[in-house]
Lab assay of single mutants.
Amino acid sequence: SGVNQQQLQQLMDMGFTREHAMEALLNTSTMEQATEYLLTHP
């Protein structure tokens, strides 16, 4: 699906929903950016 499943699982383990985590990974290129994205786009 174009996203790193390991990163997706890590974000879900942090408490984010699958949909939200996927959106973040699709819009960013690193785990750090994805986390930042999730925190700034709740």
Rank of each mutant, 00 (worst) to 15 (best):
G2L: 13
T30W: 02
N4Y: 09
Q33L: 06
A21G: 04
F16S: 03
T40C: 15
T17Q: 14
V3C: 10
S1L: 11
M14N: 04
P42A: 15
S1H: 13
L25Q: 02
L8M: 06
T17A: 15
Q7P: 04
M12D: 00
L38S: 01
T17E: 13
Q9S: 09
Q33V: 02
M22R: 08
F16R: 02
P42E: 14
E19A: 13
S1D: 12
F16T: 03
T35E: 14
M22V: 12
L39Q: 15
G2T: 12
A21V: 15
L38K: 01
N4K: 08
G2E: 12
F16M: 02
G15F: 03
M22F: 08
G2C: 15
F16Y: 12
A24N: 00
Q10Y: 12
D13Q: 09
T30F: 02
M12I: 12
T35Q: 14
L25H: 01
T28F: 07
Q5C: 13
T28G: 03
A21R: 00
L25C: 05
S29F: 07
N27H: 13
L11I: 05
Q33M: 06
A24H: 01
T30Q: 02
S1W: 05
S29M: 08
E19S: 11
M31Y: 13
S1F: 09
G15Q: 03
T30H: 03
A21Q: 00
T30L: 02
N4M: 09
T35R: 14
Y37R: 13
P42C: 14
M12V: 13
Q5G: 10
Q6I: 12
L39I: 10
A24V: 02
M14A: 05
S29N: 11
H41T: 09
G2W: 10
Q33R: 04
V3F: 09
D13Y: 06
H41G: 10
E32D: 07
Y37L: 06
S29K: 12
A21W: 01
T28N: 05
Q6F: 10
M12L: 07
M14F: 06
S1V: 13
T35L: 15
H41A: 06
L38Q: 02
